[in-house]
Design a protein around this nucleic acid. Sequence first.
RNA 1: GGAGAGGUGGCUGAGUGGUCGAAAGCGCGGGUUUGCUAAAUCCGUGACCCUUCGGGGUCCGCAGGUUCGAAUCCUGUCCUCUCCGCCA
Length: 437
Amino acid sequence: MLDRKYIVENAEAVKQNCIHRGIEADIDRLVTLEQQRRELLNQAQELNRQANEVAKTIGKAKNDAERDARKEEGRKLREQKDEVQSQHDKLDKEIVCLQGGIPNLSHPDAPIGEDDKSNLEIRKGEHAPLSFDFQPLDHVELAEKLDLIDFEGGARVAGAGFYFLKNDAVLLELALQQYALRMLMGEGFTPVTTPDLAYTEILHGTGYIPRGPETQIYSIENSNLNLVATAEITIGGLLSGQTVDAEELPLKICGSSHCFRTEAGAAGRASRGLYRVHQFTKVEMFAFTLPDQSDAMLDHFCELECRIFDGLGLPYRVVDTATGDLGGPAYRKFDLEAWMPGRGENGEYGEVTSTSNCTDYQARRLNVRFKRKGEKGTQFVHTLNGTALAISRALIAVLENNQQPDGSISVPQALRPWVGKDVIGSPSEVFLSRDEE
RNA sequence: GGAGAGGUGGCUGAGUGGUCGAAAGCGCGGGUUUGCUAAAUCCGUGACCCUUCGGGGUCCGCAGGUUCGAAUCCUGUCCUCUCCGCCA
């Protein structure tokens, strides 16, 4: 949410930004309503002040007659105040509604464009896409041959979009989590596991909308709890309503959580196999920072994402997200797109991570503030989030890029300590296990 | 799930209808004293919003209600703690 005063005072800039973002918002109406609201607020406050004044004299009244007269006076003032107040509240409600639909401001360097076609490639990873001297398979075929994923079983239990990881894929999931968490802990992140459910107000605060036909969110019936779409929601909510000391910032937290997404309206989009599923595991980075730290933190998050994918030996490119593709809360966003040899005709890049600087947009609604010692008042913190590893999509890239001519998968060096083997599905594996018997 | 207790400022904790934005202590900021440190002592110290910058309004978990007036009374609700049950 943007600051209301800021919107009123910078209406033209906000309007222009909405155009760049491809979002329709009636800024003029908001400005008009806000002016009316302030007028009503002043009236209500004045009436309230008068009523308070009257109330104070009642205890000191000399006799019953005077007391009754003053009571009547007070009652009338309250009635007037209630009337004005309710008009005010009505306006305020509409303003909040309009205000909630206005996206964050955009970084001046973010490419301007209406959708992901305008995203700007800014960098490539250490490793170039391999050219296979055989026809590479996609991860669905690989997983089937090696008995790594059971999509049919998942569908039987919970419907399309759910799956069982099996055998070494389970070890791969755990290995990827370990790999990412260890690296982040080494970078000063505090690791957490988070609730997989969160209150509706926390989702709103982070910019997710749990109701409506297009919602991405699963909600729990007869409660105000929702399955989280990312640990960004829970970690962001961790400090909601809190005021932290400026010296404690920046606060870097990494969390592992399950992510649940309905993917409503996503039918028809590239979604084979693990690419677009209703549940996956994700290691997320999150930071609460001072306002002047957030630009550098975004670069830091992006660099860590690169290091994670370079460390896995996976080819990728980094994309600077265009204004029209930023969503509501992000001020600037970088995506990593990993090379997936089995995607499309001859391989394609597919989004695997995303890191955003949300400035004070989430903090304002979550009400997370900081206070500088010796300074009066408080300010909103900045929040940032970034994917360290979304296991499902990382798994696609790992399986497809490391496939061997014999159909086996070479386990990336970085994961071997946790997977406990160099190759998944090699013939030698079969010999080994026989030898051991 | 059953039975109790409780939610007050950064923290501990008083406050059962008006003089309470709220005692006291701790913490924090500053002054004095002191060779430094420590100790003592004094003063100050919540947040948000509006403002014609004089000031004003709101906030005691949250939402309603009673009242001229609510931290205080009533209703609902959420959360926390303790005990029992159940369970990983």
